[in-house]
Each structure stands twice: as structure tokens, then as C-alpha cells.
Amino acid sequence: MVEPQYQDLLIVGNDIALDAVGVPMGISDRPSIAQDIKHMIRESGLLVELVGERQADKWSLNLSRLENLVESDTRIQPGTAKITRVESETVLVSAKTVEYQHIEFTL
């Protein structure tokens, strides 16, 4: 079996996920990258700025900033990050990783 390149603890609901016996669960490689990107976006504060925002130009500007933020991660292929508004308070994040192809999640 190939040794994972990226490893992390699985975070669910802002807390470390535990298995049935209480041991922290881990994730590796592609899911680990997606989780790191998700946390980077949340910590940037750019999503908070969009809550209640009705001006399309401000939404567009912040989505572009978020795409640039995602692409700043060296594990993401430049020019592949795409962030789209799915619902009034939900955005879809997709990008291609250098080693593991496509990642996609919603925030």
C-alpha cells in the first residue's frame, strides 16, 4: 500500500471526529487537501463578508478573491479553482489538485 503524502485529523462540526472507541479519526491525501482548503477559506473571513450581501459586484469580487486564495495553496493547480454561488448562502468550491485530481465541496 502506498504511504499517504498528506495526513490530518478529520474535523466534523468544528471538532475532531472520533471512532467508536474514542480514537481520533484521520484523513489523508485528497480529503486532507479539501479539508485544509475549507478551513483556509473559513479563516479568511471572506465568506462572512458575503452574509446578507445583495450587491452582485461585491459577491463577484469576493468570489474572485476566494479563488485566488484557493490557488495560493501549492497543492492546487493554478487556474483551476472555481467558486460559484449555488444558493443565497451556499458556495460550491472546485479545483484540481496537483497529485490527486479533482476536489469539490460546499460551504
Rank of each mutant, 00 (worst) to 15 (best):
V2E: 09
V2K: 10
E3R: 14
P4I: 00
Q5T: 13
Q5L: 09
D8W: 00
L9N: 04
V12R: 14
V12M: 05
V12T: 14
G13T: 04
D15T: 09
D15S: 09
D15F: 02
I16Y: 06
I16G: 01
A17D: 06
L18M: 11
D19W: 06
D19F: 01
A20D: 13
A20V: 09
V21H: 07
V21K: 12
V21F: 10
V21T: 10
G22P: 08
G22I: 02
P24A: 06
P24L: 07
M25H: 02
I27F: 02
S28I: 00
S28G: 09
S28V: 01
D29C: 07
R30Y: 00
R30C: 02
R30I: 00
P31C: 07
A34W: 00
A34I: 01
A34Q: 12
A34G: 09
A34Y: 01
Q35D: 05
D36F: 11
I37P: 06
I37A: 01
K38I: 03
K38E: 11
H39C: 02
M40Q: 14
I41M: 01
I41E: 00
I41Q: 05
R42W: 08
R42N: 08
S44G: 04
G45D: 02
G45W: 07
G45M: 04
L46C: 05
L47V: 08
V48W: 07
E49N: 08
E49W: 02
E49R: 13
G52N: 07
E53V: 09
E53H: 04
E53I: 00
Q55T: 03
Q55C: 01
Q55D: 14
A56V: 08
A56S: 14
A56R: 09
D57N: 09
D57S: 12
K58M: 12
W59Q: 06
W59F: 13
W59P: 05
W59A: 03
L63N: 02
S64V: 04
R65W: 09
R65C: 11
R65E: 10
E67S: 05
E67L: 03
V70L: 07
E71A: 11
S72D: 13
Q77F: 00
Q77T: 03
P78M: 07
P78N: 13
P78I: 03
G79Q: 08
G79A: 05
G79N: 06
A81K: 10
A81E: 02
K82N: 11
K82H: 10
K82Q: 12
K82T: 06
K82M: 04
I83M: 09
I83P: 12
I83R: 08
T84A: 10
T84Y: 01
T84M: 08
R85W: 10
R85E: 15
V86F: 08
V86T: 15
S88A: 14
S88R: 13
S88K: 10
E89W: 07
E89V: 08
T90K: 15
V91D: 02
V91C: 11
V91P: 04
L92C: 03
V93R: 05
V93I: 15
S94P: 13
S94M: 15
A95F: 05
A95L: 06
K96C: 00
T97V: 01
T97S: 00
V98A: 02
V98C: 03
V98H: 02
E99Y: 10
E99A: 13
E99I: 05
Q101H: 14
H102P: 05
I103G: 10
F105V: 13
F105T: 11
T106M: 14
T106E: 15
T106N: 14
T106S: 15
